[in-house]
Amino acid sequence: MQPAFSVIFLTTLIGAGQGLFLALYTVELYSLFEFLPAQPGPAFYAPGTALAFALLALGLVASFFHLGRPERGWRAAARWRTSWLSREVIVLPAFMAATAAYWLAHWADWREPSVALGAALTIAPSVAIGAAATVLAFALFLCTGMIYACIKFLQEWATPLTVANYLMLGGASGFTLATLFAGRTAPELVPFLGGWAAVLTGIGFLTRAASLARNAGLKPKSSLQTAIGVKHPRVVQTAQGFMGGSFNTREFIHGRTRAFLRAIKWIFLVLAFPVPIALLGAGVAAGSSTLLAAAFAAQYAGLLAERWFFFAQANHPQNLYYQAIA
């Protein structure tokens, strides 16, 4: 496939936004159960949530650049019964609304427990809103991953590992950003968030490495023989029906060398995983915001490369029909 930068930015930005929100809510839950010292409400949560919202909004803006007819984008919510893309189109604004409500709850400092959960437990509105937003955050990861994983003949994508990678890589970049954010607003949280960021990055490395290993051993189910239905071991294309390019050659063939792909793979394997873990460790130990910023910058750049590689590696069976110009 030819990687589209609109989709690369969409998926990486909303992944970081979802991860950042989950990091903030994790802190609130830990504080609720007194595993962490209680945070100053509006000063920590509200700007953090606003940052997460901004990332989601940027991702949404990026997604419109993928559409030929962005003015009709609202129609994309119609087929949620069958289309994961339609589901994402619904869940992303719903999650953004929940994030906005979460921001409002913290900005207005509604911290008095007022939502009754049964007879024994009463929680603050922000915790209740955050729980709903958490469900939506995970639903959004599922939708984003399934958009790719549900196309069964794109064999590189058709695996649960695709969903796992969107979840883990989004979570990792969000927690890394949360560590950076805590460095400015709540330094006592830096070791906690930095530790989780490193753990999620490590798990993300494992799931991504697993999908790379799986894809390295893939055998294409389709061949030129099944594509044109001629059972002969030697079939070669001599003409594809036109001399110039077409949508089929532009959209599905990235036109890069194997060496280029391999280079991108190694760049993201280094930039997205070991470099941020090392910088997080150094940043937490030294209490340096600069190192934490470098950790997030490296990881985000690495994830851009990762997403580019994710698209480029997918080998569409339609390419069997476009192997020779003339």
Binding site: G68, R69, G73, I151, P317
Partner: peptide, 22 residues
């Protein structure tokens, strides 16, 4: 009149018979 040009259907066609009008 309803198509938003997201190209997802062309990704989901193994035969490459859908083409976007540029």
């Amino acid at each position: 009149d309803k198509c938003i040009g997201c190209k997802y259907c062309s990704w989901a066609c193994p035969y490459g018979v859908r083409e976007i009008d540029e």
